[in-house]
Design a binder for these strands. Structure first.
Lengths: 236, 236
DNA sequence: ACCAGAGATTGGAAGGTACCAATCTGACAC
DNA sequence: GTGTCAGATTGGTACCTTCCAATCTCTGGT
């Protein structure tokens, strides 16, 4: 351990210190934090930048830095289904529906940035939370990047498996969210009446070189799932 | 003008320079950019930080900084309906359904952080894109922060009006997204068959002190609207 | 040809200084 | 009391330097 950047350590320290404070409690000044923790003001600002971006604090020039009110939502981060469910105090589980190698097809090929006639591995799973269906998940990988995947144990965390076995680390993802009417198969699998609506999330997972690694379409039960996040004003 | 921070100017300059470049084109090194533009490397890093956060470039330590592939989605920013529609090449319009002062009620009071029996101004609008219904919007403000609002022209941009008339600047917002089944009134107003699904966005707009200024519930037509954004892996 | 390793290159982290701009505080006049 | 203005406080911007860690390149040996 200890191979941690100072600004990161400081960020966690400040997070811990402010954890119990009521909203709008002022933090020490940047200069004070710097001397208290024996670091430069630059490092303090770096840590505060991260906390501000995450919605933990807000800053007002000339006034100070303050504990932000409890946000409805953690700032927007990329999470796996398992992480997501645990954050909601639900126990994640999986039922494997299919794992096969197929032709990409135009749509998937387009999202993965590969040729339409190339092979992709498709993993289809019904995902459960506390034993009840939560969503249908359809993951596609370029076949040449995950040889032998279909023979692995696919009931656990795919992300962990990808990282451990193939060195694929997904750093960011583009997502498109839409409300859909569930068809017969989908509503049956999810255990909701025909005609119910669902929340569809189409995701393309990218590695640290912004190259597509994975394309996933997930359809959530509308009655059990919502998406929460914070947005900020930005420059054009 | 010209009262612009250097890192911001540099960010825009780099954005313009890279606009035409194909993905994965390397940018000059940070040190080169610094000397070329006559600024310090710190300033360059600040500009690149912003571009990276916005998904315009990606950086690989030891290798360089590169133009990011065209993202599906601009990074997540807070936009008004009008801005949002124009970004999608649609012409925004409004039909005012109601503008009145009412009791807050528990739910709205909770979201706005005011007393349940206090007054709030409610503005209800049907919003159109290229002449066709796009969403139903229900905005609530604490009444004491927007005196006389109900008598204003409410068919244009509310955000612009708030800023100009009341000095309210909304800097960030917490959002909760869910798929819903539309009821009779909603589907009639939106011009879709009864039983269709819709995308509901509940938003609480916050000023720069993270104080709630506005609570909005918007229900979008599922067939015309989606939400696109990029997420990143983050630290716990 | 191919591979391994040394060295150069590049982004990342950290320290320091100086000054600016927004805000807050308190003294003072009325 | 109330308002106003000067000065102190605090975050924001910008500059500099130094070293580290990951990556790439190129040289030389086999």
């Amino acid at each position: 351990m200890a191979r941690q950047a100072k600004h990161e350590e400081l960020r966690l320290a400040l997070l811990a210190e402010t954890a119990g404070s009521p909203p709008h409690t002022p933090l020490p000044t940047e200069r004070d934090i710097a001397t208290d923790h024996g670091v430069s003001r630059n490092t303090v600002r770096q840590a505060l930048d991260a906390l501000e971006a995450a919605g933990n604090v807000y800053r007002v020039q000339g006034a100070g830095t303050f504990v932000a009110p409890p946000v409805v939502s953690k700032s927007l981060t990329l999470t796996s289904f398992s992480e997501d469910m645990r954050a909601r105090d639900l126990e994640p589980a999986s039922r494997l529906l299919a794992a096969e190698t197929v032709r990409a097809g135009r749509q998937i090929a387009d999202r993965l940035g590969v040729a339409p006639d190339s092979d992709v591995v498709r993993v289809s799973r019904l995902r459960l939370a506390d034993g009840a269906p939560m969503c249908l998940e359809n993951v596609h990988f370029p076949a040449d990047r995950v040889p032998g995947l279909v023979d692995e144990d696919l009931t656990g965390s795919l992300y962990a498996l990808l990282d451990a076995r193939y060195g694929l680390d997904i750093r960011s993802a583009d997502q498109i969210i839409r409300a859909v009417d569930l068809d017969e198969t989908e509503s049956a699998l999810l255990g909701v009446p025909l005609g119910s609506s669902g929340l569809r999330v189409q995701r393309v997972g990218l590695d640290r070189r912004d190259t597509p690694v994975e394309a996933t379409t997930t359809i959530y039960r509308a009655d059990r799932y919502d998406i929460r996040f914070t947005v900020r004003r930005a420059q054009p």
